[in-house]
Design a protein around this nucleic acid. Structure first.
Lengths: 146, 146
DNA sequence: TATTGTTATACTCTATAACTATA
DNA sequence: TATAGTTATAGAGTATAACAATA
């Protein structure tokens, strides 16, 4: 492996980003597996839980950076397990609000604890200030790409 | 979308990491498409080009964070287009060294220019010092996850 | 005309297991 | 026994296009 140290590729931010992201997602998925969730389903569940009035699927797609057609499937899956439900919006009959059920909220709490703990393996040695900076930089990358 | 601003999920480093990574990979893939490459094939090509003595597939798997079985397919693809070739190692007859051909080197140069330019959209507003810090942090995340 | 949600489809990526040939 | 490479397969993620209902 000696020949590959300090290589241009291993200095490439895109490469480093996807490799680090993959590692963290893998760790999170492992932690969520016991709850029958994966990161994408979990993300939808969390957003539904925290939106008192419900979230539209369009909003979910925008925040998560997914195509609306993918959101349909994720919500289908969660709804099938009765972790969320779709409720027609009164203001706009095209939209359907996604809301968490009591079971969904309970599962989210348990899953969140495990997910948070698991991510400490790859992220544990980052100081609070570094986390804040990383958060800021990643958000700016996302915004600039939008 | 108002209800989702400053939300716990959008502060989660794992979530931010995968969203930012996705954006950069998407931009890179778009830039590489004209060369008939995607990031993974491109990464293998770059590493093969820069290893004068060739790289083993095991080394590629370790650096890229991929399973060896995935590397086989990536190298097959590049070899099929005669961008790299497999040469048996004299030291260890189990290993096969991957080396870039002249065509592979030429394609890498052209592809690298486009990929670098494309990534400036999402990463352009990061100052040099920020890039260095980000590089460092992402490398540490990968190392800690290893 | 534009937007929300939906269905369908094809392709890429990821994860595993099992096998071979060499060490 | 362990390692490098290979084959095969299934599941998850991504990317598009087209459509109905509603705005």
């Amino acid at each position: 492996m000696e020949v590959l140290m300090g290589h241009p590729l291993t200095d490439d931010l895109g490469f480093l980003l996807s490799r680090a992201s993959g590692a963290v997602v893998r760790a999170t998925n492992t932690a969520l597996a016991g709850h029958g969730l994966r990161v994408r389903q979990y993300s939808v569940l969390v957003l539904a839980c925290d939106a008192a009035e419900g979230v539209t699927q369009r909003e979910l797609a925008d925040v998560l950076g997914l195509d609306p057609s993918q959101v349909v499937l994720l919500v289908d899956e969660l709804a099938g397990r009765e972790l969320v439900e779709r409720r027609p919006s009164e203001a706009d009959r095209r939209t359907r609000l996604v809301l968490a059920t009591a079971a969904g909220r309970a599962l989210r709490e348990a899953a969140e604890r495990d997910a948070t703990a698991a991510v400490e393996a790859p992220l544990g040695l980052l100081a609070d200030a570094e986390r804040d900076r990383l958060r800021d930089v990643l958000t700016r990358i996302w915004t600039a790409a939008g």
